[in-house]
């Protein structure tokens, strides 16, 4: 078990520092955002598993040969208050400390995940209430004023229009796809052509269809739980960037590259405008890499490389789990 603890500690370190650093700048991500996304998810899970598993297996090592046996022995000794048995097994205070650490850390991670989930749900509910009250749904309401785009109703379908001059579009995931909303602003509606608007809405709808909000949730929680860990922040940003690339790809299936690019350009802030001020506070979601792959589409990743990445992701999940369960 001590060997396993060492292995898990090494894995935890690799997954916490060098691997995310390399992956967040890896060039293949623009060629195959899907495989990069899978790899990130595997890293988040395996990272958590090894960070908890390393101290736990180390702490349990003196108590038994296998994991279940050691856990049972610890529980038995806790109730028996058998100090001589502790001495016989050569239990060092560091073993006890490691066990406590893994329990506290596990609780912290779990609670943070839960709290992040509840908080996100609550603020989404509130936001959805506001959207419902402040915006006009495009479909079904004859009063929906689409300006010069009166013919666009069918394509925008369930989008909501909010009266604001800043050009923006976003989506708000609901519990089901039907409960989700896509919001576009009056400013966007005025600036874009019908085709460009349709491309924007398709982009947002891809976010919802592919449930990107669930893919980013774990990384939001990691960041909230360990904000001092630089890789928690990098991971979150990298995953957000990947969701944008995936949504772009979704939009490109039915809309032209030019329309999507033009909608990006036209809706970005002009210098010295009030909107520019608003958006300067936000971190850049349209990164250079994302723009570049829209302008010059990269070669999709070859089959061997893609399956290599997939196997790496699978191995990340299966190897530590398997070792923990079989030992």
């Amino acid at each position: 078990m001590e060997f396993l603890a060492l292995f898990l500690a090494l894995l935890a370190f690799l997954l916490a520092v060098p691997v995310p650093r390399a992956l967040s700048t890896a060039r293949f991500r623009s060629r195959s955002p899907w495989s990069a996304m899978l790899l990130w998810q595997a890293i988040a899970l395996a990272g958590g598993l090894s960070i908890l598993g390393a101290p736990m297996t180390y702490g349990l090592a003196p108590f038994g040969e296998s994991l279940p046996e050691a856990v049972a022995e610890v529980i038995r000794l806790m109730f028996a208050e058998d100090y001589t048995a502790l001495a016989e097994r050569e239990v060092h205070p560091t073993h006890i400390f490691a066990l406590c650490f893994s329990v506290v850390m596990g609780g912290h991670l779990l609670l943070t995940l839960l709290r992040t989930y509840m908080r996100v749900l609550a603020s989404r509910r509130r936001h959805r209430d506001l959207v419902r009250l402040l915006s006009t749904p495009v479909d079904g309401s004859p009063g929906a004023d689409l300006g010069r785009h009166s013919g666009l109703g069918a394509q925008l379908d369930d989008a909501h229009v909010i009266e604001h001059d800043a050009p923006l579009a976003y989506c708000l995931p609901g519990r089901t796809y039907a409960g989700s909303v896509t919001v576009i602003s009056r400013g966007l509606l005025d600036q874009l052509s019908e085709k460009e608007l349709a491309a924007v809405v398709a982009h947002e709808r891809t976010h919802l269809h592919q449930r990107h909000h669930l893919l980013t949730m774990a990384f939001d929680a990691w960041y909230r739980a360990l904000p001092w860990l630089p890789t928690a922040r990098h991971g979150r940003e990298a995953v957000l960037e990947l969701t944008e690339m995936l949504a772009d790809d979704g939009a490109l299936q039915h809309h032209s590259r030019d329309d999507l690019l033009r909608s990006l350009a036209l809706s970005s802030p002009e210098e010295e405008s009030k909107e520019a001020e608003l958006s300067r506070h936000s971190s850049a979601l349209i990164t250079g890499v994302r723009l570049k792959r829209l302008i010059v589409p990269p070669q999709p990743l070859g089959r061997p490389a893609a399956s290599g990445i997939l196997s790496a992701a699978a191995a990340l999940l299966l190897v530590p789990t398997g070792l923990l369960l079989t030992l």
């Binding site: 908080r119 936001h127 800043a166 976003y170 966007l188 980013t216 970005s268 971190s283 349209i286």
Partner: peptide, 15 residues
């Protein structure tokens, strides 16, 4: 976290 990645607004002026 509540909303999913707005579409625009994140481009720098130079970009």
């Amino acid at each position: 976290e509540a909303v999913l990645a707005r579409f625009i607004g994140g481009v720098s002026e130079e970009e």
